[in-house]
Design a protein around this nucleic acid. Structure first.
Lengths: 198, 198
DNA sequence: CCTACCGATCGGTAGG
DNA sequence: CCTACCGATCGGTAGG
């Protein structure tokens, strides 16, 4: 459906934008990597900005889709299982989509100035979905006595903070060290939620 | 001690590097902001790279100093207090040194390619100190029965992950929303550590 | 601290 | 998809 050479440009752009950022990637690098001359990129995209949005829109679509499938597919599972699932969804994303995860990291923290607002909107949409999944699940688990009676927003804030922390840490620890951290985080997160006698 | 105009360049460079990154900052911008011509920067620094390391070295020195004072000053306090202190040390840093914190964020995740190794070393030094403080304190608190008998490395991993998560979140939430998250994180972190009967 | 300049590279266009 | 080109800007230097 998408012409071969256009798709090649998009793949090369994902690679380069994730490693060098938008401003740090030149159209001639992009052309080299795509096996054509710089000017030829303009037969597929209006300008550099259009390449950017094509890459970003595609990446966001794929991830929001994954999250909403998780939402429907795991409706029957326990809180602890579902909690681990949402952590794993993110951890697997960091591990298996190295380039896309790194692009996400860049766009969250250091968006190109001119694109900041439009990117912020896209990120908020994603976070809303994540929040909804967790809130619904948390309230259900509290009622069932499966976890302690914590304020749902407090619990959600903590889970998302752990996910964000792992997100950062993945890019500067070795894979072995990172896996230890994921285990530690799951264990301690569950300790924070489990019901206790006081 | 440091000549006025040299210090002005360093301040401007911190401002610009934190907002636009190293490669994204041009020497002419830096000159404009410092109230001089581009060529004049070369009377104070050998080249752009030398400006970079002057900014970075200064920022790291200040932060490692703060951490080691905390280590000695709070020796008498309880685990929960000291845990909150180390979270606050970082949160206050994000809030009160906006530019420096943002520079730190950039250098952790997206270091300029050529400087990556030297930066990694500096960051590891800092993390070692943080680790040492927490490990010593955690083992003491476990022995005293003040917290549950968790593996120290597991506990440390969780605290650092929360701090890293807040680090990311500070740059994309409003201050009000962020403060709520800090409170939530402190509360849930303590729940994960407190001793329980099972 | 300045003016005046260097070669290299940037994003983008003309015209085919 | 190409060759050939544009004005603007980059980091850095000469010489004062």
């Amino acid at each position: 459906m998408i012409p071969l050479s256009k798709d090649t440009i998009l793949q090369s752009a994902l690679y380069l934008f994730s490693r060098k950022g938008y401003e740090g990637t030149s159209l001639s690098e992009l052309a080299d990597r795509s096996g054509m001359r710089k000017a030829s990129i303009y037969s597929h995209f209006k300008n550099k900005e259009a390449v950017f949005w094509a890459v970003i829109d595609r990446a966001f679509e794929e991830e929001t889709e994954k999250l909403s499938s998780l939402l429907t597919e795991t409706a029957e599972e326990s809180f602890q299982e579902r909690l681990n699932r949402i952590i794993d969804l993110h951890v697997d994303f960091y591990k298996q989509n190295d380039e896309k995860a790194n692009l996400w990291r860049r766009m969250t923290l250091f968006p190109p100035e001119a694109f900041q607002d439009r990117l912020q909107n896209k990120l908020m949409e994603y976070e809303q979905q994540c929040n909804a999944l967790l809130e619904q699940e948390m309230n259900r688990a509290i009622k069932a006595g499966e976890i302690a009676a914590i304020d749902a927003n407090t619990g959600i804030a903590m889970v998302l903070c752990m996910v964000d922390g792992l997100f950062m840490e993945y890019s500067y620890y070795t894979e072995e060290e990172f896996d230890k951290r994921v285990q530690a985080v799951k264990q301690m997160t569950w300790r924070a939620f489990m019901p206790v006698q006081r």
